[in-house]
């Protein structure tokens, strides 16, 4: 039996009819046309399907579409609406990615981290990113970009004395 689901995706309102067993990941990709969340492990381990649900990172392979009725989702498509974020720019400069499959999940997870902890220590970045697997880079350029973005943001908002 179909269920009516109303949600916001990157600020845009959507009304969909979904079956209870449909995964959010599938619905986003095939019906909403948002392709940045990627199927990887499809069991919660890799983080490539990460989306922000009401600002918090979740794994869309573990969420039923019917559960997000009334909620708000953000994906990298939405982050970039006004151009690349500080974090994304640093990731481009530092060549943080190679194939890029992990990138949407990593960008969103790091975005959440910087929102709750604007000046993380390296070990805090490592801990926060540890559930997002990257098979290409060895993580160093990703972690460096998060730390550089945090330092830049801190320098522009509160000049150091």
């Amino acid at each position: 039996m179909g269920h009516a689901v109303a949600l916001k995706v990157n600020g845009e309102s959507w009304s969909l009819e979904v079956e209870p067993a449909e995964l959010l990941l599938e619905v986003l990709r095939s019906r909403v046309g948002i392709k940045s969340p990627k199927p990887g492990c499809e069991r919660g381990d890799c983080g490539s399907c990460t989306v922000l649900l009401d600002g918090r990172s979740v794994r869309s392979c573990l969420v039923l579409a019917v559960e997000v009725d009334g909620h708000e989702l953000t994906t990298v498509e939405g982050l970039g609406i006004d151009g690349l974020t500080e974090l994304q720019q640093r990731m481009v400069e530092l060549s943080s990615f190679q194939c890029g499959y992990c990138a949407p999940g990593i960008v969103l997870t790091a975005t959440e981290l910087l929102a709750v902890n604007p000046r993380p220590e390296r070990h805090e970045v490592q801990a926060a990113m540890s559930g997002n697997l990257c098979r290409c880079t060895g993580y160093a350029p990703i972690i460096d970009a998060v730390l550089t973005a945090a330092a830049t943001a801190a320098a522009t908002t509160a000049p150091e004395v």
């Binding site: 983080g47 649900l53 979740v58 794994r59 981290l113 559930g131």
Partner: peptide, 9 residues
């Protein structure tokens, strides 16, 4: 427990 994305849920 697992990762941030799991712990949030």
């Amino acid at each position: 427990v697992a990762s941030v994305g799991i712990r949030n849920r």
